[in-house]
Design a protein around this nucleic acid. Sequence first.
DNA 1: ACTACGATCTACT
DNA 2: GTAGATCGTAGTG
Length: 227
Amino acid sequence: MHSARPVGLPMCPEPWPSWATDACDAALFLGDPRDVARDLLGALLVTVKDGELVGGRIVETEAYLGADDPGSHASTRGVTRRNATMYGPPAHAYVYFTYGAHHMLNMVCQPAGIAGAVLVRAIEPLLGIDVMRTRRGGRVLHEITNGPGKLAAALGLDLGDNGVPLNEGCVFVYHGPEPASGEVAVSGRVGLSSGHDLKYRYYLSGSPFVSRGRIGPVSSRRGSPEE
DNA sequence: ACTACGATCTACT
DNA sequence: GTAGATCGTAGTG
């Protein structure tokens, strides 16, 4: 049978993954962000920037809800110019800039008028690895995309990509093999000043490509900080 | 106009 | 383990 590689995309040295045969349709990105975050684990995330095709398998995500979520850009602030994309239609990229240095890639997953998105925190590099490595300053493989800021840099994303529709421009998502349920771990989100008690982070526990985020408010406390 | 701070990363102790 | 980078956003005057 013929290659599953989509027509129209640039070539890259690595072969297109045989399991990535179908682009995710917009319906996958319409639902509770916690469900979408879980469903995106294992999917293939691809970007085409500067004529280069790069990407990898999503291994870590976080869900961000609306006004009720203290960790969300939508909490207590309402619509602002920064978070407007989060209130826009689903299946679009919400890219923002933070800490004076880093871009973050989110996927909007609630109907227009309702805030909700999934932050992609880490992927396993599969396509265009040399290009991503160059964009990341020549790091070793497992440090190219193991964090939201690192991932956005490797994928070549910036504020110019805020609001682009998924699978129509430069950001694409393809269905991957569903992870075994025992492989999916859940924990508190990383780097928040509030809302870390909510277990809205999802990752593949066996993957060496997840970020090493600190979990929870206290590091000296013993016991079981996560489920 | 001015200020404080952030869904982070890196380097150095 | 922790401080510094670095700039867009939002709140205030």
